[in-house]
């Protein structure tokens, strides 16, 4: 009897904190969540956060659709938010009624993928451009030609991020089309151009920050923040904004429809809308965040970074990435599979 009591007491003592303070399972892109911010969140709220990584929107979509994942929050790109909503995977958690919502930069409130922000909260936003190691090639890098028609110095040293929508967007604009086009004339040019470029690529992979820094790859398509983090390790790394057109994207945190820790998840969404906390996300991942007033908490080097401040003459080349209709996506997938074989 005594033994049973003792065991029960011990069990309760061990289990109690977990029950009392709650937990939160965050499903996010790899190497994207500021550990300092999570630590601060855990300290302030007592909620224990577990982070699981994914490397592409499609991986996240497939895993969440399959069910039984146990995650509470996911961070899809804007182009995937409508898909997540249409498939009934996100909870209408009304971030627009949360305490810290007033901090959101007005230009990111009425976005095409979630008008008025009924589902999502900005995580980070940035651009897709080209990263070049200028000690290998010191010509003009504000062009997609770096990856699609590379100079001799870069051939065989190029990595292309296997993010289909971004890459097809860059490629379509490079041959003079518009994003999401299903025009077969244009797509044929895209296919031929990509097939001709592929032999110059050494890999199509994610997670290249270390490899750029170490010189394993010398150029490639990349996200601006990832490029900036590579530059922090190797001063020769530069980021170019393709004058032919380059996508602007935003990743957004949202609560999953089948989340088990809903209150904790709401607390988290509200937490990352506080300028101070959003700034912590940015200083880790090195992208802008869509929360007004966060700038003053950001490190000095980010305010002037060439990866963040777009040169005036290249601002016009940016386009906000949209969700392409299934008939276009089908054609893109065919071109893409052929490319990856």
């Amino acid at each position: 009897m005594t033994k049973t009591l003792a065991t029960t007491a011990m069990f309760l003592a061990l289990a109690a904190p977990a029950f009392a303070e709650g937990e939160l399972n965050l499903y996010n892109w790899g190497n994207y969540t500021s550990p300092e911010m999570i630590e601060k969140f855990e300290k302030e709220t007592g909620i224990k956060v577990t982070i699981t990584d994914y490397d592409s929107n499609d991986t996240a979509l497939a895993k969440i659709k399959a069910g039984g994942h146990g995650f509470d929050i996911v961070v899809p790109s804007g182009t995937y938010v409508p898909i997540f909503i249409d498939e009934g995977l996100l909870m209408e958690s009304k971030p627009n009624e949360m305490e810290n919502f007033s901090n959101m930069d007005p230009q990111w409130v009425d976005v095409e993928f979630d008008p008025g922000r009924n589902y999502t909260v900005p995580w980070q936003w940035g651009t897709v451009g080209v990263t070049v190691n200028t000690s290998v090639y010191d010509g003009d890098i504000d062009t997609s030609a770096v990856i699609f028609d590379p100079p001799e110095e870069l051939k065989g040293k190029i990595n292309v991020t296997p993010e289909m929508n971004d890459l097809m967007g860059l490629a379509i604009h490079y041959v003079g089309g518009e994003q999401c086009t299903a025009d077969k004339e244009v797509l044929k040019k895209v296919r031929d151009m990509l097939q001709a470029a592929k032999p110059s690529w050494i890999s199509m992979d994610y997670g290249m920050i270390e490899k750029y820094a170490a010189g394993d790859v010398a150029a490639g398509s990349n996200w601006n923040g990832a490029s900036m983090r590579a530059r922090a390790k190797n001063a020769d790394i530069s980021f170019g904004y393709p004058q032919e057109g380059y996508p602007v994207w935003m990743d957004n945190a949202a609560i999953l429809a089948d989340a088990t820790n809903v209150e904790e998840a709401k607390t988290f969404l509200n937490f990352i809308m506080a300028p101070e906390n959003a700034a912590m996300l940015s200083s880790f991942a090195r992208y802008a965040n869509g929360i007004a007033g966060s700038e003053e908490f950001m490190p000095e080097d980010m305010k002037t970074a060439p990866e963040i401040v777009v040169p005036a003459e290249l601002k016009g080349a940016a386009y906000v990435a949209r969700t392409c209709p299934p008939e276009a996506t089908k054609l893109y997938t065919a071109i893409w599979t052929e490319l990856q074989k």
Partner: peptide
């Protein structure tokens, strides 16, 4: 293989992910 030297396993994964087939 760096994502452009696929084997069958990777091709199958591609269909369940980005390929959406």
């Amino acid at each position: 293989g760096g994502g452009n030297q696929l084997m069958i396993g990777n091709l199958i994964e591609l269909q369940f992910g980005q390929g959406r087939n």
